[in-house]
């Protein structure tokens, strides 16, 4: 019994991560009908910005609450800015093109981030980004100059994994006669649940949510009605990316290895979780993530661990065969 409960705790803890990433997927899909494949890589970039900020502040030697807040806020800002930039420069120019073009661009952005972050760092090449730019005699705008000087010298990180410092101290509890649970598991779950409720509230109870739903329904008509379509879409991307940043820091704090392809598998699985729960549906993403995490955990724990992903995904295929719209998804009839 203790073993089963431990599996449940582990599974929920894993599922919470998928849920947090899946929330971002589902929001962007809900508004744009675009599968943002770069979402997993925003998650990775957020983990690395958290790492750089934490290293700069010296979190490893002396963790304090203030520093933890700074790490979270800083990496949320970076991730939000990246989400905004990806939408602005990669997706917006293609918005009125066939949807396939945007999808392929999303995959391209994902590869750009994954492999861009695997380049040898400028420091390893014996230079700083500032010197590189000056060396070409390019004039850099003043504000940008300050940003460049502040960039960490070990950027890009290269393929070597880094060891992420704990943003807040880990506490392990033993409950129910031998089930181990940590404050990270509890905090992650509560945060994911709070975000789910928050998003649900934004989408159904605020003016911005109403605008989102209108854009999702028909962007052209929404525009004609005076809704700032671009701003709504940008904000959606920023919101989704900020969620990815929170997920990244909660994961990196308890599983402290980060590397440039760390977003690949969680991203894919979160996508599956979002589809499984009914893509575009906020509570569905949460439910899908938890079910996927538990399925993986039980398969690995009670059967052959190398079939972990295989069997978990097979279950998902079966469910989708029976309910193609996902667990909580609604059947939409395309009117011609």
């Amino acid at each position: 019994m203790t073993e089963f409960l431990q599996h449940v705790v582990n599974g929920v803890s894993l599922g919470t991560i998928y849920a947090l990433i899946a929330l971002g997927y589902t929001m962007v899909y809900g508004v744009l009908k675009l599968i943002n494949f770069a979402h997993g890589d925003v998650y990775m970039v957020a983990a690395f910005s958290g790492f750089y900020i934490a290293t700069g502040l010296g979190v490893r030697d002396d963790p304090t609450v203030g520093k933890a807040v700074a790490v979270f806020l800083g990496s949320m800002v970076v991730a939000g800015a990246l989400g905004w930039a990806i939408e602005r420069f990669a997706y917006r120019p293609l918005r009125n093109r066939p949807r396939l073009a945007t999808l392929i661009t999303a995959i391209g952005v994902s590869f750009l981030l994954e492999y861009g972050f695997q380049l040898p760092s400028l420091q390893a090449q014996g230079r700083s980004l500032e010197e590189v730019l000056r060396g070409w005699g390019w004039t850099v705008p003043g504000w940008f100059d300050a940003l460049v000087t502040a960039l960490p010298s070990t950027f890009p990180p290269g393929p070597t994994p880094r060891f992420f410092p704990e943003p807040f101290t880990r506490v392990d509890w033993t409950v129910l006669g031998g089930v181990h649970i940590s404050n990270y598991d509890v905090v992650s779950f509560l945060v994911a649940f709070a975000f789910m409720l928050g998003l649900q509230w934004i989408v159904y109870r605020t003016r911005f949510g109403m605008a989102m739903r209108a854009v999702s329904f028909d962007p052209r008509v929404a525009g004609l009605m005076g809704i700032p379509v671009n701003r709504v879409i940008s904000t959606t991307f920023v919101l989704g990316s900020v969620l990815a940043a929170v997920a990244a820091l909660l994961v990196a704090g308890s599983r402290p290895r980060i590397d440039p392809i760390m977003g690949l598998m969680p991203g894919l699985k979160a996508f599956v979780a979002a589809v499984f729960g009914g893509i575009g549906n906020v509570p569905g993403a949460m439910l899908g993530g938890l079910v996927l995490g538990l399925a993986e955990e039980m398969v690995a724990g009670y059967t052959v661990s190398s079939f972990r992903d295989g069997i978990a995904f097979a279950i998902l295929i079966l469910v989708l065969l029976v309910r193609p719209e996902g667990l909580l998804g609604r059947v939409t009839v395309e009117k011609v």
Binding site: N10, L14, V251, P266, E297, G301, S305
Partner: peptide
Amino acid sequence: DQSYKAGDQDFKAQLTAIKN
């Protein structure tokens, strides 16, 4: 006799089974 894949983040499922 459990297994994992290099690069995995989470090994708790296998470890819980082993612990038991």
